[in-house]
Nucleic acid binder design. Structure first.
Length: 275
DNA sequence: GCCCAGGAGATGT
DNA sequence: ACATCTCATGGG
């Protein structure tokens, strides 16, 4: 294995429990996934993170190891719940996901729970992805846009996608027909967001997840049921639509609103900080 | 049975 | 622009 970095990232929290990504598997204290079409393995040791399957630089980038989380923690120190959340989760990072993967699980996440999203994600990969192997662990890549676009709705429903099946097929079709997701990273936030909203199954919340996890917009601020509650309880912002909350939060919290959001979200969802 | 889950889309006002 | 409904599905 290769040395990735000495940053104190909490792999279990970040890869398994933070609901940013649903395709990581843990076995014997090691973490497995398919990234960029390559089977990957990560492990936390005394001296830091080790990994194999991809160049160390790419794994550093995926794990967001070059962001100054201490500076962001300082930036929000005047917000009590933020200070507490950063203190609770010193090893939580915001992943730099593949944008197609972020889009896929984003559509699956609508009105769904994390256990079911993970189960459906794994079933989709097993049924339509490509088989990979590393360190004796068998893995499956995410289905390509082409494979998903060609799937039958009834088949996707047997995998647990529910009413989201036609959204998956239609959005995959648009990507397969040439919509360049990666190029959205070069646009302004509002323009990139607007283009994501054109995809079936993508609303304001999912678009902000894709912007944050898949396109590097650190100010993107997804408002789901938990963030809606915490915005009311901790910031006094309530009785307005979620889109309005997202706008208010971005104005109030600035360039790293989305990074902070992950810490607040986790604290609220787990009940670590009282709503 | 009821309520909820990292919501989105359609419809009516 | 906002309010309300419905959409699968498994778990508490």
């Amino acid at each position: 294995m290769d040395f990735i970095g000495s940053e104190r990232i909490d792999l279990k929290l970040t890869l398994l429990d933070s609901a940013q990504c649903f395709s990581w598997i843990e076995a014997d204290g090691r973490y497995f996934n398919v990234l960029d079409g390559q089977a990957v393995c990560l492990e936390a040791r005394e001296d830091g993170i080790w990994g194999e399957g991809l160049e160390p630089e790419k794994l550093r980038r995926y794990l967001d190891m070059d962001r100054d989380y201490q500076a962001i923690r300082d930036q929000y120190r005047s917000i009590p719940q933020a200070a507490r959340a950063f203190e609770l989760y010193p090893g939580l990072h915001v992943l730099n996901e593949n944008v197609w993967d972020a889009l896929l699980w984003g559509i699956l996440s609508a009105n769904n729970n994390t256990a079911r999203i993970r189960g459906t994600t794994l079933k989709l990969a097993e049924a339509l992805g490509e088989k990979k192997e590393i360190g004796g662990q068998v893995l499956f890549s995410s289905p390509t846009p082409e494979r998903l676009a060609g799937a039958r709705e009834e088949f996707l429903r047997t995998l647990g996608t529910g009413y989201r099946a036609p959204y998956l097929i239609r959005t995959a079709g648009m990507v397969a027909e040439g919509m360049d997701l990666q190029s959205l990273a070069g646009l302004e936030y509002e323009e990139a967001r607007k283009r994501l909203l054109a995809l079936p199954g993508v609303g304001d919340k999912v678009a902000n997840c894709i912007l944050l996890f898949g396109l590097g917009f650190s100010s993107a601020f997804p408002v789901d049921t938990w963030v809606e509650k915490l915005m009311g309880s901790w910031f006094g912002i309530h009785d307005i639509p979620r889109t309005g909350m997202r706008e208010e939060a971005r104005k109030l919290l600035g360039e790293n609103a989305g990074i902070l959001q992950q810490f607040l979200f986790h604290a609220a969802r787990t009940g670590a900080i009282t709503l």
